[in-house]
Amino acid sequence: MSSPVSTTASIDPTTRRVPPLGGLNVTMLKIELRRIMRNKRTMIFTLVMPVLLYVIIASNAKYTNERAGSGNVSAYILISMATYGAVLASTSGGAMVATERALGWSRQLRLTPLSPIAYIVVKSLVALTLGLGSVLAVNVVGILTNKADMPTHVWIAGAVIAWAGSIVFSAFGLFMGYLLPSENVMQVLGPIMAGLAAIGGLWFPIDKGSVLDHISAWTPIYGLANLARWPLYGGGPHLVWIVNLAGWFALFVAGAAWRMSKDTARV
């Protein structure tokens, strides 16, 4: 047996430090962003598709001429598509945990100082950045194509609300990511998101007071869709929109936290 004692001085455990912020840092954030931009499927679905949908639908002369609140219907479509892009981007960002769990990367990270909270913060920041990219893409193309018409403050308010509200869906993505450990979770979530966007009122306007409207009010995209378009119409936001958004947010966060605690306990 070797004589270990005489040589222990070269690794001194007492000098080692714990990183600040649970390991959160700019390098990992940069690599995470580079990584998501490498994913062609994510890029096409979150950045290209909402823009294309906007360009195709909003260039219809009928929509550029028809008014909607302080703008035209093209503006209404622009805000809707920006919201859709942000929602999809945030969901994709959150759902990355599914891939990472399937590949054993989450387990690998647990052998580093990175805290679970810091990990969730990073995933949310990545989701929000992707969401911002999506909102900006639709809005920039909207300006360049010159079909949408609305006051500047409505442009800005609509974009900001669509983006900020999409945080709800990064929690949704996380929840689903922990629920469905698969490398291709977005193949499942993509169609679900499209369905939720339709019933939530992003694909086509839903008549107020109709049966569909009552159903729509219970679905997760309804609140954000109406809040994002609210600057276009002015007046006060309906309480039901806020309750809808906050309620689903609470549900998704609770679901994600529940699944995450199950995951880290590994019983």
Binding site: T15, R16, R17, V18, P19, P20, G23, N25, T27, M28, I31, R34, R35, Q108, L109, T112, P113, L114
Partner: peptide
């Protein structure tokens, strides 16, 4: 990138 990512998580 994998190594840099991991390295960024440690204090030392």
């Amino acid at each position: 990138e994998t190594v840099e990512y991991t390295a960024s998580l440690f204090a030392d």
